[in-house]
Design a protein around this nucleic acid. Structure first.
Length: 431
RNA sequence: GCCGGGGUAGCUCAGCCUGGUAGAGCAGCGGGCUGUUAACCCGUUGGUCGUCGGUUCGAAGCCGACCCCCGGCGCCA
């Protein structure tokens, strides 16, 4: 039987079966008329042995001229051999070159991270990057499934916008036929409009931030999972977030076991078992105080404070009720203490920091105008947003989740860039 | 934007303190090898030492300015 197969199948077929594999040559080891090829495809790597007596002279000759990453078609038999990695290899009978590798392949052992990002278009072929991308895909798929199963409608919002969601944040400016426009940093406002028809909505799309951040947690373009819910107040929002996060992580870990192993990463799913602890901003200050860090009330938690705080927890936890001066104007003031807002951030443990940010929105027209003016913003810029409060306003809440941040945490990635196919940072827009 | 580290062969780096005319490993190329696992052995190509200026008989190394990269902070997901 001549059979077209994927590399992973080699390890489940019977010894002696003949297969036809298509893939790329990861490495070549030559011993005169015995040549070993490490053949890679999207499912794994297998050793192909090309030797005279099994393959013809021509195949051995061809094999010995192959460079790294040449694409080939191999026909051969699956054999058990203790000397082969994984205990199995392909004894090559026929070898065909699909595409040669011209010149030396730049990606090889010993190269540094910078070089790998300069050559990301090639490095993507590595099993490690493939594993991360498969995990990422599974994670986003799980999120989408969870939303759909819970009655949310997926909506797609514009990327070009005219005004900032949050006054101070830095936006990328684009020339929109002579008018000033910006790239979106959140679809929240559009989602707030959409809930009047759909009640529960979610979006999975990129957001852009022009902040000049130079850290391993920041991208200028990142994938943002956002949701907005009508008739929802803070406590229900927190439950939604913890259910979603838990589902996403557990599903991903269970469905992508092999990829986690490939990356040498284990994730204990008990860590994301709901409920997550909720602490108020004020309690966070007390915890910090007990660790010898004092910040004045009203100040936002800085990176150092966040790190110290997250080190006290093994599971993700919510920090709620931030002071209104630390949050954007649309956050709902707490009726029982108007100095604070019905806001919440979900912080990952052990220093990974903010994964989700959200809260209850102001739904009262007058209060919203008042808050816009207090922040020295112009209500004219928010006309349609204010309109939403004029016709049948309702309490509502929403949140945003950083896909790469969540991946960075569950995969323990040193740098957020490795969670992206082609990362975009302040310094990098190529390749 | 502020602070710290860095830029030397295709890649990873040493040399810089103490100035004397550029090195290693890997990769490449040629040759050898029938059981390698990032194979090994022999041979070999390869450098505006980030840029500009200064000091000096002489600068990769000292001094000054600038450019670029990485990270920490601020800002945030």
């Amino acid at each position: 039987m001549l059979k077209s197969a994927y590399v992973e199948e080699v390890f489940t077929l019977r010894a002696g079966d003949r297969v036809e594999l298509l893939g790329w040559v990861r490495n070549v080891r030559q011993h005169g008329k015995l040549v070993f090829l490490d053949l890679r495809d999207s499912t794994g790597v297998v050793q192909v042995t090309v030797k005279t007596g099994v393959a013809d002279e021509e195949a051995v000759k061809t094999a010995s001229t192959l460079g790294r990453e040449a694409s080939v078609k191999v026909v051969g038999r699956v054999v058990e051999d203790r000397r082969a990695p994984g205990g199995r290899e392909i004894l090559c009978e026929r070898l065909e070159v699909v595409g040669r590798a011209y010149g030396e392949y730049p990606i090889k052992p010993g190269v540094g991270p910078r070089f790998l990002y300069d050559n990301r278009h090639l490095y993507l072929r590595s099993p490690k990057v493939s594993a991360i991308m498969k995990i990422r895909s599974a994670m986003v798929e799980a999120a989408r499934r969870w939303f759909i199963e819970h009655g949310f409608t997926e909506i797609h919002c514009p990327t070009f916008i005219t005004a900032a969601v949050e006054g101070g944040a830095t936006l990328f400016e684009v020339n929109y036929f002579g008018r000033k426009a910006y790239l979106t940093q959140s679809v929240q406002f559009y989602q707030e409009a959409a809930i009047y028809g759909l009640e529960k909505v979610f979006s999975i799309q990129p957001s852009f931030r022009a902040e000049k951040s130079k850290t391993r947690r920041h991208l200028t373009e990142f994938w943002h999972i956002e949701a907005e819910m009508a008739f929802t107040e803070l406590p229900e929002l927190l439950e939604t977030v913890e259910q979603l996060i838990s589902y996403m992580v557990v599903e991903t870990v269970e469905k992508r076991k092999r990829e986690f192993t490939e990356l040498g990463r284990r994730f204990n799913v008990e860590v994301v078992e709901p409920p997550f602890e909720r602490i108020k901003y004020e309690e966070a200050l007390n915890i910090l105080e007990s660790k010898g860090v004092t910040i004045s009330w009203g100040e936002d938690l800085g990176a150092d404070e966040e790190r110290i705080l997250t080190e006290q927890f093994d599971k993700p936890f919510f920090v709620t009720h931030y002071p209104k001066e630390a949050k954007a104007f649309y956050h709902m003031p707490d009726p029982s203490n108007p100095r604070v807002t019905l806001s919440a951030d979900l912080l990952a443990p052990k220093g990974y920091g903010e994964i989700v940010g959200g809260g209850q929105r102001i739904h009262d027209y007058k209060l919203l105008i008042q808050r816009i003016e207090e922040e020295n913003l112009n209500p004219q810029d928010y006309r349609w947003y204010l309109d939403l409060r004029k016709y049948g306003t309702i309490p509502h809440s929403g949140f945003g989740l950083g896909v790469e941040r969540l991946l960075q945490w569950i995969l323990n990635l040193r740098n957020i860039r490795s969670a992206c196919l082609f990362p975009r940072t302040r310094q990098r827009i190529y390749p």
